[in-house]
Design a binder for these strands. Sequence first.
DNA 1: GATGGTCCGGTCGATCTCGTCCACTCGTCG
DNA 2: CGACGAGTGGACGAGATCGACCGGACCATC
Lengths: 157, 157
Amino acid sequence: MDEIDRTIVNLLRADGRTSYAELARRVGLTAPSVQDRVAKLEKNGVITGYQAVVDPEAIGLGITALIGIIPDSSADHLAICDKLGAIEQIESCYFLAGVECYQIKVRVPKMADLEQLIHRVAGIGGVAQTRTTITLSTKWEDRPQPIPTGEVEHGVD
Amino acid sequence: MDEIDRTIVNLLRADGRTSYAELARRVGLTAPSVQDRVAKLEKNGVITGYQAVVDPEAIGLGITALIGIIPDSSADHLAICDKLGAIEQIESCYFLAGVECYQIKVRVPKMADLEQLIHRVAGIGGVAQTRTTITLSTKWEDRPQPIPTGEVEHGVD
DNA sequence: GATGGTCCGGTCGATCTCGTCCACTCGTCG
DNA sequence: CGACGAGTGGACGAGATCGACCGGACCATC
């Protein structure tokens, strides 16, 4: 994970379809060696995939909500997580330090779908309460921040 | 936005580097027509970009936190948003319906960076209070959900 | 302390696939 | 009938990919 790798990752985060030839030009290597580096970054779990970024509204997912999940005292966190994972409308799921043990981000087409979804989440065993916040607008999302320079080691190369 | 477009978008959300030739094979068209469709999807704002998905821990961003922002009564929401936009550690920013007018997701290398970041956010004019929750783990993030079939129109084609 | 083997990362060149442009076809609609 | 949108097929240049080769770092041996 040297400076060149960081540059490659930054370029691929900004545009995931950048060709190896283009990456090579940017970092001053040849295409095969860039390809080799990218393959290693993928193998080492630094790059875990590539996604097209899609406007949720354009595909009929106009409503976004954040839902905090408060477990009851005897809840099995992992069981809750499994159940949450089966709900495909949940795009993200964070395990939190706090009263709300999870926060999930969901997208649905209509308010009725959100209502149904909240009932489904609230019905999961071990869930005592949910707290839903509607997002009025998404200012930005998944904005890649520059990779911090490795002045301090953090265990991955 | 027909069934073929939905398939293309689903494929590109699952793997943003899928070649046009491969997409063409999957949807039963030729590469040029797929390319044409993708270009239109990009032009119409359905596909807004492509990103490599990177493991934050692997690039030294081991700490993720969610911060709720509570404005004071006279706050200018847009001004706050501009200031937030200038902070590169903020990966996502949602405008909410609720006491907390924004929720932001931040990533930093160390706790000290988080502390500094919270102070910076709290110091923005119009911000009365912040509420920070540390994420202990990210169960999943940006999981693409299937595009709902357009049984109901939603204004974008 | 010099020598030789090995490994790692890179380059180079050949080949095959892919991207891209253009001309043509076909069905639809005015 | 003509125009248009969407797709096809072919051609050509660019990119991806593979194998062979090269040079430096490292290490053990002599």
